[in-house]
Amino acid sequence: MSIQVLVVDDSAVVRQVLSGLLNAAPGIQVTHAVADPLLAMERMRMHWPDVVLLDIEMPRMDGLTFLRKIMSERPLPVVICSSLTADSTQLSVEALSAGAVAVVNRPRVNIREYMASHADELIAAIRMAAGAQAQSPAEERIPRRLALTTPPPLAPPPAKLTADAILPPCDGGVVPPSEPLVAIGTSTGGTQALERVLAALPPDAPGIVVVQHMPEKFTGAFAARLDSICAISVKEAESNDRVQAGVALIAPGGKHMLVRRSGATYYVDVIDGPLVNRHRPSVDVLFRSVAKSAGANALGIIMTGMGDDGAAGLLEMRKAGARTVAQDEKSCVVYGMPKEAVKLGAVDKSVPLDAIEREIVAQCARLV
């Protein structure tokens, strides 16, 4: 059966262009293309789509309001395609946090030419969304500070490199310092999942390092959003940042992040390097560095996402004595990365998303 898509955009030209590109792709059919969310709701009552392709700036109801309405009432995969997200990474992060599976940017002018040259990205996002398990976002929380008002585009698949290109395998000779460390890797669906986990943590949670697959410039806005709603501090990582209790460091988009140990203290290095498992930052690169630097003092967590990035690195963490946890299939938007880690024998236990916070707190209690 074909993937049934509902296009919602107030521009007749955009609706025509997007419908033409998608209908020309094997296995995809645009069932309706409408000008605003109210018309979309009428069509959805008659025919429920597999994926909604949604603009943000529209009359009668904006796209973010409609997205939140869908996710609160009957979640389904939504891909944002908007010129506004091209101008605002903050808006893109807000859409992903509200439940969008992916954001595909488009310009305000030269729509036909641009979308024709980026058709593969759009089609890949629709196919990926059709296989995702849409979920309601976390309940609104009172922000610790004023809140700010992602799969990011899919990278083309170059020759696959492993984390050996960045860091040699762990030799098992780790003499860890005393403080616990938590390393988290995630991709598609991870913006929502991380928000739920990090916002549930107490202010004295152990130091956390995170790779979320995101493009450059997204991760700063994402970290700022998390910082505004969490009891812990959250920031985009910079080289020589200390990994410490009550702080989560997010790897910058377009850079790898590694953990190193100096005496009894952990620091991060943010570096350039080749794509690893088609990603930069790569979860494997982070996990392998944690295996070398922290050994049994670490907890590795692999969460929702496509592909296999992180599976091999998590196995190295487990072999170095770390505890390893995977998000379970039922609570994942995409059960790809956790599934590959489980298949590889890298996972001690699989738990629902809402139980991950307890695993982090337990890790701190176990080692302190």
Rank of each mutant, 00 (worst) to 15 (best):
Gly321Asn: 00
Leu54Thr: 09
Pro215Ser: 07
Gly27Asp: 13
Gln90Ser: 14
Ala355Thr: 00
Leu96Thr: 03
Gly173Phe: 00
Glu238Cys: 15
Ile271Val: 12
Asn297Glu: 01
Ile56Gly: 06
Lys235Ile: 06
Thr31Ser: 12
Pro168Gly: 08
Arg45Leu: 03
Ser262Thr: 03
Ala355Ile: 00
Arg358Lys: 06
Pro158Thr: 01
Arg323His: 00
Val101Ser: 05
Val325Arg: 00
Glu340Trp: 08
Thr265Lys: 13
Ile56Pro: 08
Thr85Tyr: 14
Ala35Glu: 13
Ile126Gly: 10
Thr188Pro: 08
Cys170Pro: 00
Lys339Ile: 01
Pro137Thr: 11
Ala183Asn: 08
Arg45Ser: 06
Ala245Gln: 04
His213Tyr: 07
His47Cys: 01
Gly263Ile: 09
Ala100Tyr: 08
Val5Tyr: 14
Val290Glu: 05
Phe218Thr: 07
Met61Asp: 10
His118Val: 01
Ala100Asn: 02
Ile142Gly: 01
Leu146Asn: 04
Ala245Trp: 04
Thr304Arg: 09
Arg60Ala: 05
Lys69His: 14
Arg242Asn: 04
Ala159Asp: 05
Ala25Ser: 12
Asn240Ile: 15
Arg278Asp: 14
Lys69Cys: 07
Lys343Ile: 10
Arg318Ser: 03
Glu236Trp: 15
Ala134Ser: 02
Arg68Ser: 14
Glu179Arg: 05
Ala132Lys: 06
Cys230Gly: 02
Ile3Met: 07
Val347Asn: 03
Cys170Ser: 11
Ala98Val: 02
Pro151Phe: 14
Gly295Phe: 02
Asp171Val: 09
Gly273Met: 06
Val210Phe: 14
Lys217Tyr: 13
Val285Tyr: 12
Glu140Ala: 11
Pro37Arg: 04
Leu39Gln: 13
Leu64Val: 15
Asp354Glu: 11
Ile123Gly: 07
Pro158Cys: 00
Arg278Tyr: 15
Thr186Glu: 10
Arg196Ser: 10
Val30Gly: 08
Ala25Lys: 13
Thr186Ala: 04
Asp328Phe: 05
Gly190Thr: 06
Leu67Asn: 08
Lys235Leu: 12
Ala237Thr: 07
Ala138Ile: 12
Ser11Val: 06
Ala98Leu: 11
Ile229Leu: 13
Val51Ile: 06
Ala298Thr: 05
Glu121Met: 10
Ser2Val: 09
Glu113Pro: 04
Ala193Asn: 06
Pro59Gln: 09
Thr149Gln: 08
Val368Cys: 04
Gln29Lys: 13
Gln363Ile: 01
Ala320Gln: 04
Ala193Tyr: 10
Glu121Arg: 06
Thr324Phe: 02
Ala311Tyr: 11
Gln244Leu: 15
Leu344Ile: 04
Ala298Gly: 05
Cys230Tyr: 07
His279Lys: 02
Val175His: 10
Ala248Phe: 08
Leu146Gly: 00
Val175Thr: 03
Gly295Val: 02
Ile271Thr: 12
Asp9His: 12
Leu148Thr: 00
Leu344Gly: 02
Pro338Thr: 00
Leu6Cys: 07
Ala341Pro: 13
Tyr267Cys: 10
Leu198Gly: 10
Ala33Phe: 09
Val276Pro: 15
Arg108Lys: 15
Val259Ile: 07
Ala125Ile: 09
Val14Ser: 03
Ile356Pro: 02
Ser19Trp: 10
Asp204Trp: 03
Phe218Leu: 10
Val93Arg: 10
Leu286Lys: 07
Gln4Phe: 10
Pro137Phe: 12
Gly185Ser: 11
Pro152Asp: 15
Leu148His: 00
Val109Phe: 15
Asp36Trp: 11
Leu76Pro: 05
Ala25Tyr: 12
Gly345Gln: 01
Pro152Tyr: 15
